[in-house]
């Protein structure tokens, strides 16, 4: 990802991404995929997160960003880009 320092929105996105990376690191079973994490990284296929731990990722995200993730959003929170989009949208709603 290329960070563009002049645009606040992009800075926010990289900050969100770094916080998200810390969260998923707790559940990832593939340390290489974690190291080379990009927006297209899939939580299950790439990071090998156990599906039972996806709920922990969702709960950790809720706590870290002080947002509530509804069930429809949770359904599609399967990769980094979807998670970033959901977090950004929920933060805007606050």
């Amino acid at each position: 990802m290329i960070a563009i320092p002049f645009q606040n929105e992009n800075m926010d996105r990289s900050l969100i991404l770094s916080k998200l990376k810390v969260i998923v690191a707790n559940y990832s079973h593939d340390k290489d995929a974690l190291e080379y994490l990009t927006e297209s990284t899939d939580f299950i296929k790439d990071l090998k997160i156990n599906s039972a731990n996806l709920v922990d990722v969702v709960l950790d995200v809720e706590e870290e960003f002080d947002i509530e993730i509804d069930n429809l959003s949770m359904e599609r929170m399967l990769n980094v880009s979807a998670a970033l989009e959901i977090i950004t949208d929920k933060l805007k709603e606050k």
């Binding site: 559940y27 156990n50 039972a52 731990n53 709920v55 922990d56 969702v58 709960l59 809720e62 069930n71 949770m74």
Partner: peptide, 22 residues
């Protein structure tokens, strides 16, 4: 299949909000 030992190590279902999401 659920390995009950692995599940005990990896998951804390008593966590707040956990059961409501599942």
């Amino acid at each position: 299949i659920v390995d009950l030992r692995q599940a005990m190590l990896e998951s804390n279902w008593r966590r707040k909000g956990y059961l409501d999401k599942l």
